[in-house]
């Protein structure tokens, strides 16, 4: 059952087919995601919304290759993730995926610059330091490059996280509640920066959020409830 139309005119970057995730919990099978499908093209911006426990984060984890689905399949930049090992999926993430998290997830023992360097150095990129510094400059933190996360404010940490997410020029950027830990003013600045960078890089953006205002900034929204896609009204294309 195809719930969300493929856009044939543009190149597919992320395709999700009948994705189901079931956990064994206290001897019972608990299905947290039921047969979800959608497809995104390069440069699309996409929001997944829904109440707590609706399966948003599970869906994001499966799309980004952080976890394996019980059934169904995920194609990311024409690579099918389902049969890859954990290390192979890690390589795919390093090459094609960027992340932004609600609690920033910066490595506390590394400076801002070193945090941005991680994905670049992992892929052995030459001139990594120059690229990382340029990105920090782009997010307005060139002068805080050698500060540790504990020495930065929440907004600054999220901007470092943005620089790190774009460092490897990802095909898809996954953002999990990117403004969940920020005050409204800082949130707005971070969101504007996120969309600007996304536009400049032509990255596909997948956003998980409770914030309907933020979701409204994306081209399309998928609403989940109890692990199922709520249809049909909320699936309308806003474009």
């Amino acid at each position: 059952m195809r719930l969300y139309p493929i856009l044939p005119s543009r190149m597919s970057i992320l395709r999700v087919d009948n994705l189901t995730k079931t956990y064994a919990s206290a001897g019972h099978a608990l299905t947290v995601l039921h047969a979800v499908s959608f497809e995104l093209a390069a440069g699309d911006t996409f929001a997944i919304v829904g109440p707590s426990g609706s399966g948003k984060t599970t869906l994001l984890g499966l799309c980004a290759g952080l976890d394996r689905a019980t059934s169904g399949s995920v194609w990311l930049n024409n690579i099918q993730l389902d049969n890859l090992s954990e290390d192979e999926r890690a390589a795919v993430r390093n090459q094609h995926v960027g992340f932004i998290f609600q609690n920033f997830q910066l490595l506390p023992t590394l400076t801002a610059l070193e945090n941005v360097l991680v994905p670049l150095e992992l892929r052995g990129q030459r001139g990594a330091a120059k690229t990382a510094l340029a990105l920090l400059d782009r997010v307005g933190l060139a002068d805080r490059a050698h500060h540790y996360p504990a020495q930065l404010s929440g907004g600054e940490q999220q901007r470092v996280s943005l620089a790190r997410a774009f460092a490897n020029r990802p095909a898809v950027l996954f953002a999990d509640e990117p403004t969940g830990n920020l005050d409204p003013d800082t949130s707005e600045r971070v969101v504007n920066l996120l969309f600007e960078l996304n536009r400049e890089a032509g990255t596909t953006l997948v956003l998980v959020t409770h914030d309907l205002e933020l979701a409204a900034k994306t081209q399309r929204t998928l609403r989940l409830r109890g692990g199922k896609v709520v249809e049909p009204a909320v699936m309308a294309e806003k474009r």
Partner: peptide, 16 residues
């Protein structure tokens, strides 16, 4: 463990 999970997320293999 949290830092390791971030590294894994950014593409480091378990061996690395």
């Amino acid at each position: 463990l949290a830092a390791v999970a971030v590294l894994r997320c950014l593409g480091a293999s378990g061996r690395q």
